[in-house]
Computed example of a mutant assay.
Amino acid sequence: MCDRALPGERFIGRVTRKKNNYAEVTKLKTLSPHTDIVEAPCEYALHCGGCRTQNLLYEAQVKAKEEQVRDLVIHVGKFSYKDPEFDNMMKPIVPCDMQFHYTNKMEFSFGPKRWLPKEQLLERSEDADVEPANKVLAAVQDCWKNPELEFTPI
């Protein structure tokens, strides 16, 4: 498992954690990029991890997700691809009409220093201007304290 690596991409990585049946890897250098690589429309996509394949052509994203589900069904679900019912069970992923702006979960972090991508943390500036973060925090707190905004479970 390698964060920030696209399916089929060749890269040099460092194992950061070993488990019984898998390893976690940090990508250090791309050797050959994916053939369907595109520029991600969100400037933070490669850093935040929320849209892990946003820099991949949408059709390639759908194909990669389908392969990921198939692998999970086989390896985690212990289904056999040789089982005659397997192909009936595995249906193709239906592409979404809306490729972006679909997320239903966001996490925001606040701190005394500005946010930096992991790669730039070593070059960390000593900015300690907390005023912009405090303004955002106050706006979020005002919003969730608003009695007109009510949580409705699905």
Rank of each mutant, 00 (worst) to 15 (best):
L31N: 04
L137G: 04
L46V: 12
V25L: 07
F100P: 00
V15N: 05
G8Y: 02
T26P: 00
K65M: 02
C42I: 03
P7I: 05
E119C: 07
D36G: 03
T35I: 09
R114S: 04
V25A: 02
H101T: 12
L6A: 08
L72V: 10
P132T: 04
K18V: 15
N21T: 14
H101R: 15
E24V: 13
K65C: 01
P95F: 01
E107N: 12
N21F: 11
A45F: 00
D97Q: 15
E107H: 10
D71S: 10
D127L: 06
A128Q: 11
V15H: 07
A138G: 02
E66V: 04
K135A: 04
L72R: 14
E43C: 03
E9G: 00
N55W: 02
D129E: 14
R124K: 15
S109Q: 13
G13R: 05
A64C: 03
C96Y: 11
S80P: 06
F86V: 05
V69F: 09
Y81A: 13
T26I: 10
K113M: 13
G8W: 01
C96E: 13
R52H: 10
L137Y: 10
F108G: 07
D129R: 08
L137Q: 09
M89Q: 10
K135H: 05
P132G: 03
A128I: 08
H34V: 04
K65D: 00
H47E: 13
F110I: 10
E119R: 13
M98L: 13
V136C: 06
V76E: 09
M89K: 11
G77I: 08
P132Y: 05
C42D: 04
G111I: 02
P132C: 05
